[in-house]
Nucleic acid binder design. Structure first.
Lengths: 207, 207
DNA sequence: GCTAGCTTGTGAAGGAATTCACAAGCCCTC
DNA sequence: GAGGGCTTGTGAATTCCTTCACAAGCTAGC
């Protein structure tokens, strides 16, 4: 398959959200134009995005909502359950553990990890906090698919290295640090500071 | 000024983080090459990014760390304090209120808002939770610069509309929803679900 | 003050993503 | 079953972003 742009994947994610909403409303079909309006893009973009993966619509009619939703779920790999571990049981870790969207979309949080003895053994919304020392053995045994880094930026790279050595290949980080990993490991970073600075830049450079 | 790509602004943010680290270490100068290595990009990219705003280096030598840091802070508008309000005092709002990077970088959280009577009047790490009903009058009076939306996606668009009507022009949203606002309002969205789906896509489509 | 050795700043080239524009195809009505 | 009205799927054109490549310019050493 041809290389798919990250922006395309992000938009598929957006389309899927609307499709699920429409599914709930019992809507049967939708046009690329309507999908574009909701998603803040253009109809050509919607059609192009989908065209990388196949041909899902009917000319003159549009897309069947349930069919397209199923197709995108398939593309994004959401038809199966994904096992997630959270490293760091601080405020962000706790917010993630209770995040509904997580479970609703097939992500199952199997454990959280922390070094703080006061936190170890407690539960965050049903997720047990384990000793960070067990990280490697647990990973070997339980084979989680995705690790979420929710610790301060200072320790983030070191933690990522541990996760990679233990065999993890997909990591979502909330640390405000640029992380480095081998190419076979996919790392996504949610960097709040960066987003905020995007805002201050916009505020400062208004025409 | 010529239009600046969002990717350029994001990278400036990254460069600044390293420069501040180097500043702490007392390092005097740095080359575009070193900055690129740390930031996961190329030296040509670094120089191009900076070139949109002026000429900050010395040929043969590199960039003065404190000077370049100051220049980027200026570009990003970080030399002043920014007043932030948080809408939603749930787990995410609480995590934000205590987030250190926030305050360290000149963002001052002046208030949080919620509709839940049990939360109103309490404080999150020194930030008072106010009644959501006061939102408009408070904004008119206190003129915050940035609003952070930290509520579930269902109410997010409605909340954004209220913020826009009340005069806010910069919004950071953590709701997993595509938000629409007039063009003079800058909205950034941190969408965890989208990032996760980027990971599952990568995991599913390994060569 | 001249040369060797770096590193910047930047046009030009190249590559990637988006938008255009239209033929192909489907549905519905008469 | 033929025609009108829509909407998809997709090459081509365009726009946007990144990388290349090199002249210009600075420093340090002799």
């Amino acid at each position: 398959m041809k290389r798919i742009a990250e922006s395309t994947v992000r938009r598929l994610s957006i389309y899927l959200r609307f499709l699920e909403e429409f599914e709930g409303n019992g809507l049967a079909t939708i046009s690329s134009d309507e999908l574009a309006r909701r998603g803040g893009t253009t109809s050509a973009q919607v059609r192009k995005d989908l065209s990388f993966f196949g041909s899902f619509g009917k000319r003159g009619l549009g897309y069947s909502v349930p069919e397209l939703a199923a197709a995108i779920r398939e593309i994004l790999g959401l038809q199966r359950e994904w096992r997630v571990i959270i490293v760091g049981a601080g405020k962000i870790g706790a917010a993630l553990a209770q995040y509904r969207g997580f479970r609703q979309r097939g992500f199952r949080i199997i454990a959280a990890y922390d070094t703080n003895p006061e936190k170890i053994g407690r539960t965050l919304d049903g997720v047990t906090v384990r000793d960070m020392a067990r990280l490697e053995t647990d990973i070997a045994e339980e084979k989680p698919d995705i690790a979420v880094i929710a610790i301060p930026s200072e320790g983030a790279q070191e933690t990522l290295d541990r996760l990679v050595r233990a065999g993890m290949t997909a990591v979502l980080s909330f640390a405000a640090a640029q992380l480095h990993a081998p190419p076979e490991v996919t790392v996504k970073t949610v960097n709040m500071a960066m987003e905020l600075e995007g805002l201050t830049f916009a505020l400062t450079n208004k025409d």
